[in-house]
Amino acid sequence: MTSPSSSRDRVLGRVRRALAEAPEAPEVTRDYLVTHTPDDPATVLDLLHENLVDYRAGVHRGTRQGLPSLIGRLLADHGARSVVVPPGLPGAWLAGSDARRRYDDPPLTPAELDSADAVVTGCALAVAETGTVVLDAGPGQGRRALTLVPDLHICVVDVLGQVVASLPQALPRLDPTRPTTWISGPSATSDIELDRVEGVHGPRTLEVVLVAD
């Protein structure tokens, strides 16, 4: 085995030799569209709703005031008796549920997360054209494992501040130094005959709540 530093030199040396005669690369063009959607908040929100539903997420529209009872009802409808509470989740959001709270302090073990029925979080951003919610481990979201192991994920999106139309609008609003998870519908696979089936390892149920005030 060669020492790590010599392999580094070897690979970089080969790259430089391979490119010795190469012409300058053409300039990168970015004349693609910034968005494919009319600049109208109601249209963008409808598109988000439609695309989330298309990939089998449940979508619910509500008000901040009605949020506790909506979340309480969703947890009850799915028979969730325990719910993981990420740090920074507004206390009021769970006021309408009597499910047992599982706080991540000290951090829950993978087995403890596996025994929890649900998790409720906010998000960093939602992208309408792709039907995506983006989590960046910020307040009310917690570390990545919290939204992965429980089988039901309820995700609250603030319609006024967190919805963008497109990917080119989404990326500048995210911080690359934070671990980021982009979620477009529940876990799925196309591995059997290239046909999409929902429900493999991630949460098999994703409920997205669009809060409008």
């Binding site: 792709t130 130094t177 980021t180 982009w182 529940p186």
Partner: peptide, 18 residues
């Protein structure tokens, strides 16, 4: 798909996450 169900992005290590 318009977007695949999950995309993970990470930069080095993060305290208390992963």
């Amino acid at each position: 798909e318009r977007m695949n169900p999950y995309t993970s992005m990470w930069t080095g290590t993060t305290d208390g996450d992963g």
